[in-house]
Amino acid sequence: MYENKDIQVKKRKRSWYRYFLYFLLLILVFFSITEVITLIFQKKAISLQYGQGEQSRKIERALYSQETIELLRKKSYLSGRIDMAKSDSITLVVSLVDSVIRLELKGVIIHRAPILKYSKNRLFESSDQFAISNLLSVPGKVTSFEGTLPKEPMMIKIAPKDTSDAIPDIAPDTSKVEPVYYRLNLDNGIIINISEDNPKSYIANMPGFIFNTNEKISQIWDNASSLLRGKRPKNILYIRLKVDARDGRIIYRALPYKARVTVRM
């Protein structure tokens, strides 16, 4: 009698495992499917928005070979930089072709940093190349910054009441360094994710790991929820850059809140 009860308890426990695994499997399958659907949607949307115009546009496009598309991209890149040079603010130029990221002010290169590693959405390659050229032909505008370091390291100091209350300024501690992980969300749907590439311990890289994981989870969640609500998921094109922490910090601090960005690929 007791043995039977034991077996029943064991069976119940086993079924719990099973239900949990079923649930896990369901979630994984659901999110994987939504991700695939999102990619298909995005590919179509990019093609429609930037590639296919009227019929005449199609005929015009017949003239573009891979070589001319390359020239067109270079032209867009230079036009973009010239356009940005007209503004008074600091702009960002990302050239994946030369593996260089630059800060420019009125067309003058004020900072140049090598891109140590980079990756980009497969959509950039697999989508209609003409559409991608059109997308990159106009400089993007930063809509928001998100990062692990403060944009301006502001410190508040309350004025002393008299000389006895006054404390002399202490030189700031320059040894303290924040992890450099941030992203620039552009108005054309491109997200530029810049992170440091300095080898550090796992614990030191923890904020970056949390930052990147949060980003991925929120993106998957957004895609799934918009599909569930019957809406088209947002077009998100990722460019992930790894630069030296020093350069990453300089770029983050230098860029204004509504900075303009030109990408060359």
């Binding site: 298909i40 199609k58 989508s127 209609d128 003409f130």
Partner: peptide
């Protein structure tokens, strides 16, 4: 879906439809 299936519109355009 993303890589294998060619972009039909692109083929149409490049061959001129």
């Amino acid at each position: 879906m993303i890589e294998g299936v060619p972009n039909i519109s692109e083929i149409q355009v490049l061959t001129g439809s």
